[in-house]
C-alpha cells in the first residue's frame, strides 16, 4: 500500500483546505477513499451516506502515486478525524510553496503532511504534521462505497447559495425544519412553518433538468432538518459552478454541487416527518 501526492498550485491548496474545512465542521469522523483517479471524502451518519465529495486528482496534484492492496482492488480506505486534518492544513494559510501528503507508518498509520513554507533565508521552512488515521480493512469496504443515487421526482437548479444562505440563516431561528418545494415551472421555494406564521421564499425561473410531473402546477416537496441544510450552504466557499437540488417527494433531498469538473459533491438529506 502506498500513497503520496504533491500540491504546488496555490489555488488548488486553497480549494483543498476549504473542502477539508467544510467537512471538518460537519463531522468528527470521515472516510477518505483513494483511487488512481480521484480522492473521495465521505461522511456517513448512522450508516447512511450524508456527504460524498469526489476530487479529481489531476487538478489538485502535480504528483500522485498510489498503490492499493492489489491490482484488482486498487483502492485505499482511510478513516480519520477531519478536524485534525483541517488544523494541519491551517499551516497552508501562510502562502506555502508546496505540500506533500503521504501515507506513512510511524508507530501507527498516519497521513503525513509536509509543508514547505517560505523563509527569510535561502532554505525554506518545513512543517510536518502527522495525522493519525485508521486504515479500513477490505472486509469493511462495502460500508464505505459510493451511495446509490435514487431516481428523483424533480431536479432543478438552485439559486445562488449566497442568497439562500441569508434566508436560511434567519429561518433557522424560527423552526428546526425546512420544507423545500419545486415545480416544473422552475419555481423553487423555502418554507418554514411555525405556530404563528408560515414564511416562504420563492425563487423563479430556474432551470428544470428533469421532472416526473405531468401537470405544470404539481409541486414536489420534502421537509428536512434545517441545520443540516444550513451546513450544506457552507460549501459556497468553494465557489461552485452549479448546484442542483433533487427531490424525492417526502423521502430525500439530494444536493449536487460541482466546480468545473474536478470537484463533485453529493449531499443527502433524509426527510423528517412532522
Amino acid at each position: 500500500m502506498k500513497f503520496r501526492c504533491r500540491m504546488m498550485d496555490v489555488i488548488a491548496m486553497r480549494d483543498f483546505t476549504n473542502i477539508v474545512n467544510v467537512i471538518s465542521r460537519i463531522t468528527k469522523q470521515c472516510t477518505l477513499r483513494l483511487t488512481p483517479d480521484e480522492l473521495c471524502f465521505s461522511v456517513s451518519v448512522d450508516r447512511a451516506s450524508m456527504v460524498w465529495a469526489e476530487l479529481t486528482q489531476t487538478h489538485f496534484f502535480t504528483e500522485y502515486i498510489m498503490n492499493g492492496v492489489s491490482e484488482e482492488q486498487n483502492e485505499i480506505y482511510l478513516e480519520f478525524d477531519p478536524t485534525m486534518l483541517a488544523k494541519s492544513l491551517g499551516s497552508l494559510r501562510m502562502t506555502a510553496k508546496s505540500v506533500k501528503i503521504k501515507l506513512t507508518n510511524k508507530r501507527q498509520p498516519c497521513l503525513t503532511i509536509e509543508i514547505e513554507l517560505p523563509s527569510l533565508s535561502l532554505e525554506s521552512r518545513q512543517c510536518l504534521h502527522d495525522v493519525p488515521v485508521r486504515v479500513i480493512p477490505r472486509r469493511e469496504w462495502a460500508e464505505h462505497r459510493a451511495p446509490n443515487i435514487p431516481e428523483f421526482d424533480i431536479s432543478v437548479d438552485m439559486p445562488q447559495l449566497k442568497h439562500v444562505k441569508h434566508i436560511v440563516e434567519r429561518m433557522k431561528n424560527m423552526s428546526p425544519r425546512l420544507t423545500l418545494e419545486a415545480s416544473k415551472t422552475g419555481v423553487f421555494a423555502l418554507k418554514v412553518d411555525t405556530d404563528s406564521a408560515t414564511v416562504s421564499t420563492h425563487f423563479q425561473e430556474l432551470q428544470v433538468w428533469s421532472s416526473s410531473q405531468r401537470n405544470q402546477e404539481d409541486k414536489v416537496s420534502a421537509t428536512i432538518d434545517i441545520k443540516k441544510f444550513f451546513m450544506f450552504l457552507a460549501w459556497d466557499i468553494v465557489h461552485p459552478d452549479g448546484v442542483k437540488c433533487n427531490i424525492v417527494q417526502d423521502r430525500v433531498v439530494n444536493l449536487f454541487l460541482h466546480v468545473a469538473d474536478y470537484v463533485k459533491i453529493q449531499y443527502f438529506l433524509p426527510s423528517v416527518f412532522t
Binding site: D81, M84, K87, S88, K106, Q108, C110, S119, L120, S121, L122, E123, S124, R125, Q126, C127, L128, H129, D130, V131, P132
Partner: peptide, 14 residues
C-alpha cells in the same frame, strides 16, 4: 491515536 504530531524545521540561515 488522537493527537497530531507536528514538527517545524527552521534552517540555520534564519
Amino acid at each position: 491515536s488522537n493527537t497530531i504530531r507536528t514538527q517545524f524545521a527552521l534552517g540555520k540561515g534564519e
